[in-house]
Amino acid sequence: MLSASVLAVSRDAKHRFSKANQHSIRLLAGLGVEGDAHLGVTVQHRSRVARDPSQPNLRQVHLIHAELFDELRAAGYDVAPGDLGENITTSGLALLDLPTGTRLRLGPAAVVEVTGLRNPCLQIDAFRSGLLKEVVGRDETGAVVRKGGVMSVVVVGGVVRPGDAIAVELPDPPHRPLERV
């Protein structure tokens, strides 16, 4: 079994779809990624701000598993870390299988708590036509399956770098499956 690690870290100070890869990012407790457009105690995603700017920001840090990129490449889409707007690209960790409330220790100090699934929007098709159907689909029962990563909040701040180990701390049972946030 592969050990979980950080493959890449990304941020962007502006609200653009993709984020530039960095040598490191600093997570700030209760806020998100320093220098990122989604930093804040309250929601920063433009569509959500338009609905209710006072909502808590449950989407401070976006994580995507690099294994999704392999799946997308097999479907004809060349996607790299940061392209889908994530802050942290992971390797060796089944992010989508984690229960709500899972804590991830990223490197020596930082800790994030998983709040739910990213719900990709139509912007993803502007990035690569037809990509939305690859990251949001349906299972054999007809239930919606979202593959676009998970969202989290920063519990303990710290610097995160590519190559950092990821330790998983599951919440006490009963475990709640991830829902879109």
Rank of each mutant, 00 (worst) to 15 (best):
L27C: 14
L93H: 13
I64P: 01
R16T: 13
L84S: 06
E86Q: 12
N87L: 07
D125R: 05
A74M: 09
S47K: 05
R161S: 15
E169A: 14
A8S: 15
D12R: 12
R59S: 14
R128L: 11
G149M: 02
G137K: 02
L7M: 12
D139W: 01
I124T: 13
V154K: 10
L28Y: 04
S54P: 01
P108M: 13
G158F: 07
A75G: 10
C121P: 02
S5V: 06
D97V: 01
G107P: 08
L104Q: 08
D83L: 04
D78Y: 04
P99A: 13
G163E: 09
L2P: 04
D139G: 15
V150L: 04
A143K: 15
I64Q: 03
A29W: 07
S5Q: 10
V114E: 01
T42C: 10
E179W: 02
L122P: 02
D97I: 01
E134M: 14
K14N: 10
L93D: 04
E34F: 14
S54D: 11
P120S: 13
P174L: 08
G157I: 06
G35V: 09
T90D: 12
Q55H: 15
T90A: 14
R59M: 02
R161D: 06
P53G: 03
R146S: 03
G40Q: 07
V112W: 13
D164I: 02
L96Q: 14
T90L: 01
R11F: 02
D70S: 05
V150K: 01
V160N: 07
A167K: 06
V156N: 11
V61K: 01
N57E: 08
A8P: 12
V154A: 11
T89K: 12
H175P: 05
P81K: 08
H23N: 03
S91H: 15
F127W: 09
V153A: 06
E134P: 04
I25D: 06
M151T: 00
L28D: 04
G40Y: 11
V160A: 10
P56W: 04
R138D: 13
I64F: 02
A50R: 09
N87K: 14
R128C: 06
A110F: 13
A37D: 07
P174I: 11
C121S: 06
A80L: 04
G30T: 06
G101S: 15
G32E: 05
G101T: 09
P120V: 01
R118C: 11
G149A: 15
G107E: 10
V114H: 00
L122S: 14
